[in-house]
Design a protein around this nucleic acid. Sequence first.
RNA 1: AGGGGAUUGGUGUAAUGGUAGCACGACUGACUCUGACUCAGUUAGUCUAGGUUCGAAUCCUAGAUCCCCUGCCA
Length: 603
Amino acid sequence: MSETPRNFIQQIIDADIASGKWGAPGDRSVVRTRFPPEPNGYLHIGHAKSINLNFGLAKEFGGKFYLRFDDTNPAKEEQEYVDSITHDVRWLGADWEGEHGAGLRYASNYFQQMYDWAEELVNKGLAYVCDLSPDEVSARRGTTTAPATSPFRDRAPDESLRLLREMRDGRHPEGSHSLRAKIDLASPNFNLRDPVMYRIVHAAHHNTGTAWHIYPMYDWAHGLEDSIEGVTHSICTLEFEDHRPLYDWFIDAINQGRTDDGSGPWGKKIHHPQQIEFAKFRPNYTVLSKRNLIRMVKDGIVRGWDDPRMPSIAGLRRRGYTPEALRDVALGVGTTKYESVIDLSRIENALRDDLNKRAPRRLAVLRPLKLTITNWHEHGDDARTEQMTLVNNPEDPAYGERSVPFSKHLFIERDDFMLDPPKKFFRLAPGAEVRLRGAYWVRCHDVVRDAEGNVSEVLCTYDPQTRGGSDPPPAPDGTKRKVKGTLHWVSAPHAIATEVRLFERLFSVESPGEATGNFVDDLNPDSLEVLTGCMLEPALAQRTHDEPAWPDEIRRFQFERLGYFCVDKDADARFGGSSSGNTLVLNRSVTLKDSFAKDVQKA
RNA sequence: AGGGGAUUGGUGUAAUGGUAGCACGACUGACUCUGACUCAGUUAGUCUAGGUUCGAAUCCUAGAUCCCCUGCCA
């Protein structure tokens, strides 16, 4: 057995395979899982956990994974969502059974089979047509001590069958009838108080058009979908735990009177999958409910479903998240029945870990401060440009090196200079010497101030002996010069001016809306900061003119000492035509860890 | 209230009657041409009260706290 801990679902499957519950004992390939979204919204990070779980299980056991749309309610579902979900699942790396996007499954493809089974239940006396309106059903639901009631419960099967067919044929208005399972009106589990199986809906369905006037309810449909597809382990979230008796009841009802070999009046037994529930993924500092996400989009709190601050898959993708990071998060938090809270920082760390290994390094200055090398002419003319060689990724030599121009006029980060620095400030200050990453050591000897007296330019001398950023030779007496700080920089005449968007968490409290009842009250007003006039090294703009749609693998970078950034789709749009400008748009995916900032905060 | 679930360091997760372990975080330190990365060390836990047992996170009893359920949504 594997040394890594097995989660409770893996343990169930291990036992099923050992016992031969779904096939020959020991045959792992019988495992079938599925991800069954309703196409009524966009996927979010919680779905990513479910997708990774279901897909991961099928992959681990050598079984099959299906992507199935649970499209049983035409009133809420749209093709747009089918498309976005399909795209997101593929992006997450979950290959569903079937080639190149074929093999998609739809509950609506099984409507006829489901309907046939419904007639069977009517004939068996296990379902009946009820003429109560939705309000009346609700009013007659009963209480924990009093049972529900329906005057139509004992309707003759023949009459129910006639009415059901009329419902199917569109001869009754919405709400006038429903098909109900005859289970137990007194059950303490209200899901069993004769649940509705079919309701009348006169609406066009994105897949079946106007073929149907009745649509199956989730509880009736879901187990049948799983059964038809041969799903072995139907994994869902905790709130469906008290639906499981229903899930089992419906399949048992169909199998009532059926036989293993198909002999007898009702034919062969159908497959009975096992429903297993696990806890949802719940990160702090965000909201995940579909209702709230829709509201944020509709009310303009964010700029759409793919706003980089959104926890939607589309938002995370645009923010610069990788499928690998999301998979690592899902793996890391495990699969249990305990409703844990996932620290947002854990998700950020997963991204850092992934991008640290894979993101090419670049130099960029977000808030530029001029730095001029006043002795540049002593070793050539003032206009001289030197090419510095920097490694693209210290974590992986395969990324190679690049050339970065260096000249008399530079930009450094405004935060990297202080007139009156506190102790342990390893950066630039009057009289201090620092290394410019991969270039030269410079020492500040003066500053230029603007009309308000603020520092507008730092004047430095450089040491030609430190080319490439290397240590200078020791002094004649053997002492070595040291610098504590290394700064990032950009050569001013070569710099590319860009827009950079910085994001913070969308909410300022861990559980938005918990205290006030309205999550909008807890919005972080500073969740978006747009910087213009940021300066990038020229390597970042090399492809912008002839290749507007950057291939995904080169869209993400680490700006040294700042964080991970990715090219936003707005940049692609701007280069869609014969654009002549060099304006890129970048998103900060996540900052680098910053222990100095943390120390400052504590002090 | 009735029904269904859950509870192990700050967070997440193992241990399935036999040494409470791992990861993340935090804190120390080392290293470093990114105050990043990496490395080393430290920190801290079985919801409570009883019981069974040589031995309990695990089994039993009682309690506490939290989540879900009374849509013709999924």
